[in-house]
């Protein structure tokens, strides 16, 4: 059994904080480790900031649509913005020596680093992220 949530929020960073609290509470209720909770919160922060800032250009009329589910094995979230989307393969690798000192462009890398699975849906304005709980095998 898993708990599912579905909601739409305006492009407002204080709303992103509210979603983080909601997700954190859900993970705590299922007994996820502090390490897992940190990982999910960080990936969520990066994904929501990307959706609001780069996707919706902070347009207050555009929303971010969020759907997440959590159970004892894994956390899964789907985040979609109302922007035109982007091609994640075209984002320069921030770990390349020539990019290492660039001041931005690390959000996607951190999402991939902290989550078990990150997948963008064409045209690139929706992302699905999965975090398999510490010590649990991924669901089929």
């Amino acid at each position: 059994m898993s708990v599912q949530h579905e909601l739409s929020i305006p492009s407002d960073l204080s709303e992103a904080r509210r979603i983080q609290c909601l997700v954190e509470e859900a993970l705590q209720q299922w007994g996820y480790s502090e390490h897992d909770i940190f990982a999910v919160k960080l990936a969520l922060e990066e994904a929501l900031v990307n959706a609001m800032k780069h996707g919706n250009q902070m347009d207050p009329d555009k929303k971010v649509h969020i759907r997440f589910a959590v159970n004892d094995r894994q956390f899964e979230i789907h985040i979609a913005d109302e922007g035109p989307g982007f091609n994640p393969d075209e984002v320069p690798d921030p770990t390349d020596p020539e990019n290492l000192e660039r001041p931005c462009g690390r959000g996607l890398l951190l999402m991939r680093g902290f989550m078990t699975h990150v997948e963008y849906t064409p045209p690139g304005n929706a992302v699905r992220m999965v975090k398999v709980r510490d010590g649990a095998a991924p669901s089929p």
Partner: peptide, 16 residues
């Protein structure tokens, strides 16, 4: 306790 990628840019600029 918590820091996102947005802060990293400032640290790099400070380092430079």
């Amino acid at each position: 306790e918590f820091m996102s990628s947005a802060a990293l840019g400032k640290l790099i600029t400070l380092h430079r």
